[in-house]
Amino acid sequence: MLIDTHVHLNADQYEGEIDDVITRAKEDGVEKFVVIGFDRKTIQRTMDLIEAYDEVYGVIGWHPVDAVDCTDEDLEWIESLADNEKIVAIGEMGLDYHWDKSPKDVQEEVFIKQIELAKRVNLPIVIHNREAEEDAIRILEENDAKTVGGIMHSFHNGTDEQIDRVLDMGFYVSLAGVITFKNAKRPKEVAQYVPLNRLVVETDAPYLTPHPYRGKRNEPKHVRLVAEELAELRGISIEEVEEATTENAKRIYNI
């Protein structure tokens, strides 16, 4: 069995289809789904989903692209929701230097506030990083994020040295469909470099659709394609990947 550790079942793309999407994933051996809420709309949808489905868990936080819109009231609301037993982490938080909606200093401020929030509620954190690996890791180190730990979501492009620093803080590395892309040299290297006991798999669906379905809407059932590619890259069985990544996910999310 597999766990999709990062999926956006709260996205508009799945409206009216949740039952079918979950059923298809279960038929492919996906037993649990961790849904990420990263703004007011998707957080509320996440809370609704974890109430409606036994196999769905939630992560709630504020996305760095929208950091400029985040208020203290938003963070207080997130903290108030975090005592739900099916909320398993705070996030996705972090830095995104690809889009220019939120200034870097605002992103950093909201990032640090969420690390402190996670410490107060004693939950791990899920980190979004895009074109900002060094700054994201520096902020985690400077703010003692190792006390809560967490997952570096879709962390495909870090250097070996950066990965070592992440692992030293007790973080896990999550791999998505990018490792199935034929030209994804560095992501494939990362999939082989990180110790198996620190890897989890995800889809980030409806985004990052793996080969051979690139260009189509992603679904959580495709986390199996990520696991199969991981097994091939490491020269081990799919059963080993299933067992390790599922145990890792259950450990970090405490489920």
Results as ranks from 00 to 15, higher is better:
residue 9 L to G: 00
residue 15 E to R: 13
residue 19 D to R: 08
residue 24 R to V: 07
residue 25 A to P: 03
residue 28 D to R: 14
residue 36 I to S: 02
residue 36 I to P: 03
residue 50 I to H: 11
residue 50 I to P: 04
residue 54 D to F: 07
residue 55 E to W: 14
residue 57 Y to H: 06
residue 65 V to D: 09
residue 65 V to T: 11
residue 65 V to W: 06
residue 69 D to I: 02
residue 73 E to F: 04
residue 73 E to I: 12
residue 74 D to K: 09
residue 80 S to H: 08
residue 85 E to W: 11
residue 90 I to K: 06
residue 93 M to H: 15
residue 102 S to K: 08
residue 103 P to V: 15
residue 104 K to F: 13
residue 104 K to N: 13
residue 107 Q to R: 05
residue 108 E to L: 09
residue 109 E to M: 02
residue 111 F to M: 00
residue 114 Q to K: 08
residue 114 Q to N: 10
residue 116 E to L: 13
residue 119 K to P: 02
residue 127 I to L: 09
residue 130 R to H: 10
residue 133 E to Y: 15
residue 135 D to F: 01
residue 136 A to E: 10
residue 141 E to P: 09
residue 160 D to F: 13
residue 162 Q to N: 04
residue 164 D to G: 03
residue 165 R to Q: 09
residue 183 N to Y: 01
residue 187 P to M: 05
residue 189 E to W: 15
residue 190 V to R: 11
residue 195 P to T: 05
residue 196 L to C: 07
residue 203 T to P: 08
residue 205 A to V: 00
residue 206 P to D: 07
residue 208 L to E: 03
residue 208 L to P: 01
residue 212 P to Q: 05
residue 214 R to N: 09
residue 214 R to I: 04
residue 219 E to H: 02
residue 223 V to N: 00
residue 225 L to S: 13
residue 227 A to P: 11
residue 232 E to F: 10
residue 233 L to G: 09
residue 234 R to G: 05
residue 235 G to I: 10
residue 237 S to Y: 03
residue 237 S to C: 10
residue 241 V to C: 00
residue 244 A to P: 01
residue 244 A to L: 00
residue 248 N to A: 00
residue 250 K to F: 04
residue 251 R to L: 01
residue 253 Y to S: 05
residue 255 I to N: 09
